[in-house]
Structures are given as structure tokens and as C-alpha cells.
Amino acid sequence: MGTSQVYVYAIVHAGRGLPPEARGVGRPPASVRLLPVGELAAVVSDVPEDLRARRRDLMAHQDLLIRLGADAPVLPMRFGMVAEDTRTVAEAVEAAAATHLAALERLRDRTEMNLKVSPAQCGIESLVRADAELRRMLTDVRRRPSYEGNVRLGQAVADGLTRRATQAVEEALPRLTALADGFVRGPEVPGCVLNGSFLVPAAASERFRAEVERTAAAHADQVELRLTGPLPCYSFVPQDGAEPAPPARARAEHAMTGS
């Protein structure tokens, strides 16, 4: 790779410092610097040789963003964004400066919490008891055991578990979005009925965790929950450097109507 290329981690307000022990991707970790552009600054480093999506580098990217976000808002870049040179970065940041400044304000004192919900496999027995069609299929398979019959039965069970998990999620979602300033559904994850990210005000984060815990307890037969955070606000940045995300509050309400 050319030596003039730069790896871009984030866009922040100008005039702030870098956190102590700010380290970048690569081995040894690239040293990170601020590239001021008007009221903004890009957080950049040199591009290491042979940069790939290694575990180590993904973690380095994420760790730096978390450190940067500890006391001030950050617009996190997607992993692996490389610009031809610093001038390219400066031009790109300048061109969308107003959008970036507005986005930074929207994210101030907020973090992303990611919730993944998958069907609880412990619910098989209660599912079969409650579902006449499954009981009929089970009776058939027991009378005439066959590979196809077992696959059909198992698939129907998987569908049933997914259906019940989805219902539990839709029931619980309004209470969670009410505590957040934003909610977006993330990329579909195999095995999950929900992969959603919440924009949670720092002041509400313990209440949010408590609500997730209550949800888990109330629906233990239907769902398994995994809550990750606080995270850099990956899901609440302007998309493709152009359109700012819709106002956060409107999103939450939108989600609550279930449409």
C-alpha cells in the first residue's frame, strides 16, 4: 500500500485531545493522530501493511472508538475505511461538515446498546403441548418413523419456537424503545429473531438494562437475549456521508407502531 494512504477511524469535534493509549490497527499498532478540518477533526493513522479484517484489528478499531467516545461524541467509521491521502479526507469531511456536526450533537451523551434475541430451545415441550398440529405430527412420526417425518417435525418445531420468540419480542419492544432516543433494526443475523440497536441516553442506561432483564425473566420460555454495550453509535451515524438519519424520536415511535 502507498505510504500516503490513511486509515480513518472516526470524525470528532476539533479541539479535543486523543485519549491516552490511543492505538490503531496493525502490528505494532499504528500511532493515531488528529487531522483538523475546520470545526471537525478526523481520527486517522497510517495504513499497516497487509491490513485485513483480523480479530486483532477489528478489536483495535472498536477499542479506539470506545476510548474516543468516553467523554465526547464520536462518529464511528465502518471498519476498514482507507483514503488515498490526508487531502482526500479533509475534502470529504469539509464537504459534509454541517451533517457531521449535527450528527455529533445528536449522539452527545448517548451510546448504542445492541440487543440480539434468539428463540429459547428450552421451550420445545411447552410448544408441543400447546400446539395440536405439532402433537399430530409427533404422533405420526412415532407411528411411522421416517427421516422425512422427523425433518418435517423438527422444522415445524423450529418455526414454532421462532414464531413464539417473535411474538415475545414485539410485545417487549415498545417498553424498550420508550427508554431510547432511537431504535434501528440491524442486519439480519441467522438464528436471531431480532438484531436491534438502541440509542440510549447515558442517564437511562441502567434503566434500560433493568428493562432488558425484566423482559428476559418474563419471556424465559420463549427467548434468549444478548445485550451488548455501551458501543460506539455505529447504527446512528449518517448513512453514506449524505443523508442524516431521521430524527431519533420519530424513529422510536415508528418502531413502536410496528411498521
Binding site: 477489528l58 467509521m77 471498519f79 440497536s197 451515524v237 456521508g241
Partner: peptide, 9 residues
Amino acid sequence: LILDRGMVI
């Protein structure tokens, strides 16, 4: 999230 979200220029 790290791979598919976050800002793209």
C-alpha cells in the same frame, strides 16, 4: 456492527 454499520464515505 463493526463491519456493516458505521459511517462510510
